[in-house]
Design a protein around this nucleic acid. Structure first.
Lengths: 207, 207
DNA sequence: CCTACCGATCGGTAGG
DNA sequence: CCTACCGATCGGTAGG
């Protein structure tokens, strides 16, 4: 009995992930019901528990999957970058592409953070922090090696991530500009933005 | 019988708004229950219907209130701006301040768009579009009057709004940098970002 | 603003 | 993977 690609169980699990993502995106964790999800893949509600232990576990699996993909995608690109500038451009391309192509998964992963168990929350947040630290490191290195002179890399990291992440809120693959065009615009604007000359010594620092 | 400030009914409504905002922020529309909300202000669930017609109406009221405040706050500042550059700086200050000080309301207003009735959704989206158009107009005017040369004001509007809005995700009033410092950083970076020289003619435009 | 209640539906389990 | 079911709880209403 030869095993081809994927057993029946794997197929149902993939179908569940796809249907669940759509439900989570449109209705949220508390808004979706397991009966709807079951109907989406043509089964009864009780049978779902052969594929996950409970509703919370299903959400957690999905979010962990997205974060894992995101981190490994950027790591793969960053390995090949010869210098901080190329690393920055690669990170931007990677982030913008991922957040466009998988916008629903990303949005669910941020919106439903509040629906996670405390333990699960900690795990996902740790993954997110690891991902954000990749950019922070790039900005630090670029400062050290004089590729740019940014006064506050921590804040710059947040601003850059904010403008990049929001691409998922408005970019549509059937829109007027192709994705590689969007990527170029982001790369250009972020490089401009990094060459700031604001005197942070003048900024009020709270005690 | 002299009327001082606010009747009892007005006070309960304010308490409901405050408690409801907190519930919506932490649990979402489907996650919060009217029984919890009632308990927050010390009444029974059934009594809530003296203050709104149903749960949907309560959410809509809250969102409409936020959007209305946001729009009028920026309009007030923009009236006094003598030129596009000052208008841009004022808009940035206004947006960043509002999204920091009232971050929970703003987040609820975007996250719970999906929980709105189609009719209510249309109304809130129209308000959001009006607000975004304020920035688009500023960018257009700045281009026309040579304050800066931005190749794609529509996309720039989205990017700038994205990076500004995300301030609510990480800024905390008890953090290391004061709010006016954050505003200055945003203003500086956005002005840098607007002086782009990317050749959009080279960007792939989908047919 | 309260008591008392309605129909509907939810996540999850037992036992095949 | 299904049938049948559980306790719990929800938004909302009637009638004071």
């Amino acid at each position: 009995m030869t095993r081809t690609t994927g057993s029946k169980g794997e197929n149902t699990l993939m179908a569940l992930r796809a249907a669940g993502l759509e439900r989570l995106y449109k209705q949220g964790f508390d808004g979706m019901t397991l009966r709807e999800l079951a109907a989406d893949v043509g089964m009864q509600a009780g049978s779902l528990y052969n594929h996950f232990t409970n509703k919370q576990d299903f959400l957690f699996m999905l979010m962990q999957h997205v974060m894992s993909d995101l981190i490994s995608a950027s790591e793969l690109k960053l390995e090949k970058a010869p210098n901080p500038r190329q690393a920055l451009l690669a990170y931007v391309e990677c982030h913008v592409t991922f957040h466009s192509e998988r916008r629903k998964e990303v949005q669910v992963s941020t919106t439903e953070l509040r629906s996670l168990t405390p333990e699960n929350y900690r795990i996902i947040i740790a993954m997110r922090d690891a991902y954000e630290n990749q950019l922070l490191t790039i900005l630090h290195n670029g400062n050290a090696e004089k590729y740019w002179a940014n006064s506050d890399p921590k804040i710059a990291t947040k601003l850059i991530l904010g403008m990049m992440t929001s691409v998922g809120m408005w970019y549509r693959s059937d829109g007027p500009v192709a994705l590689d065009g969007i990527v170029k615009i982001y790369q250009s604007m972020i490089e401009n933005l990094l060459s700031d000359d604001i005197d942070t010594a003048k900024i009020t620092v709270q005690k």
